[in-house]
Amino acid sequence: MRRAFQLVVAAALLGACGGGAGPTDGGESFPDAPLLSLSSRSGGLHLELRSSPQPPVRGKDAVRLTFTDDGGAPVDGLDVAVQPWMPAMGHGSSVVPTVTARGQGEYDLSNLYLAMPGTWELRMTLSGTASDDATPSLQIP
């Protein structure tokens, strides 16, 4: 009984709000297949982009970036700054996405706020272990 009590208490405290901790705090789920694959401007980094949901939608999205080098090895230690931008409109989003490094070359963007339909660029400035930039484009229906 005492062990059962301890388990119930632990479950109650851990699962209080049901949000689920885990690697994707917002409950995002990223598919195995990337939405986009591209190279950085210099060609020295290769980037796979997955979104949640995939494909991305108008409103709030999450994105997982996976950086590898020419040999396919994951690239950690990057400082990734991202500016969502609508090139045709000449303006960006009012919200700045938050970037979290996960290791193994993975970086998660949360609070990616794409408020209107159209073509959005994710203008990425990379520093840290590599200095480069990359600009994947997302089509929001």
């Binding site: 939608v57 409103g59 009012s94 919200v95 996405p97 706020y113």
Partner: peptide, 18 residues
């Protein structure tokens, strides 16, 4: 929907306008 709304508490906290 080309007349649309953005809503945010701060630059890292958007609202739900989806």
């Amino acid at each position: 929907n080309d007349t649309y709304i953005e809503a945010f508490l701060n630059e890292t906290h958007p609202g739900d306008t989806a």
